[in-house]
Design a protein around this nucleic acid. Structure first.
Length: 218
DNA sequence: CCAGACGTTGTT
DNA sequence: GTCTGG
DNA sequence: CCAGACGTTGTT
DNA sequence: GTCTGG
């Protein structure tokens, strides 16, 4: 699962990664982002990608209140069920520097060894009354090293899959199904313990993603 | 045409 | 809102 | 995801 | 325990 992450990058890195023309909004480094907060996302609109700030977690669909804040969505049922149909043309990417997972009350940070930005697959809802966007991060069963920490992990997109995921105007269902079943090679990931201070959202500093050494674990 | 339905995760 | 079922 | 709170009535 | 807020 994925219930906390960090977004630490500047405009130019995002523009390059997603071929964005312009980012009008301000981007600030955030080291401890939780459901309910505002997050940076990318939405594909007819061959062009746009930067959009969204609320993380969907709490209503078309004026209908949901019982819970839906901040994760299972990728394996995305295509099949009704919920999936709602989001068939509303996919997005949540670019993160890494995400947190807890095991035994202990927080770990997960980031890429290769890139500064990990592309998490997401779906969104646009509330046309308020013009506000809300999104949910897709999840899959975790594998490799990550499965030692947590049963589920976010769906991480790589290569051309990012483009396919963002292309909401030309969706190939079998393409999407394949992407939903793919899982990242976890040897590409760096996974390490971080300070318990990250538990509290009051702590939003570089310390949140610092590797904890063995000695300090005592 | 209208009526009715419409959602996820982790934990124990 | 949008899709399904009748 | 974790942290933190968790209650009602009548009266002025 | 369970809900809310961030």
């Amino acid at each position: 699962m994925c219930g906390r992450f960090a977004q630490i990058y500047d405009d130019s890195a995002l523009k390059q990664e997603f071929q964005l023309e312009d980012i009008r909004e301000n981007i600030t480094n955030r080291f401890n982002i939780s459901p309910g907060m505002e997050v940076n996302t990318i939405i594909g609109v007819s061959d062009k990608n746009s930067f959009v700030k969204q609320h993380w977690g969907i709490n209503s669909i078309h004026g209908r209140e949901l019982d819970n804040l839906v901040f994760n969505t299972r990728s394996d049922t995305f295509i099949k069920d009704r919920f999936g149909k709602h989001f068939h043309k509303t996919r997005c990417i949540i670019p993160v520097s890494g995400f947190f997972e807890w095991n035994n009350k202990q927080p770990y940070f997960v980031k890429s060894l290769k890139n500064d930005i990990l592309s998490l697959a997401g779906v969104f809802i646009l509330d046309r009354r308020t013009n506000e966007y809300s999104c949910s991060v897709m999840t899959v069963n975790s594998i490799g090293q990550l499965s030692n920490i947590h049963e589920r992990m976010p769906l991480i997109l790589s290569g051309y899959d990012k483009i396919k995921w963002l292309n909401n105007s030309r969706s190939d269902v079998s393409d999407l199904e394949n992407i939903c079943l793919k899982r990242i090679d976890t040897t590409e990931l760096d996974i390490f313990r971080v300070t318990d201070r990250v538990n509290s959202l009051l702590h939003d500093s570089p310390q949140c993603i610092e590797k904890l050494n063995e000695n300090s674990l005592l």
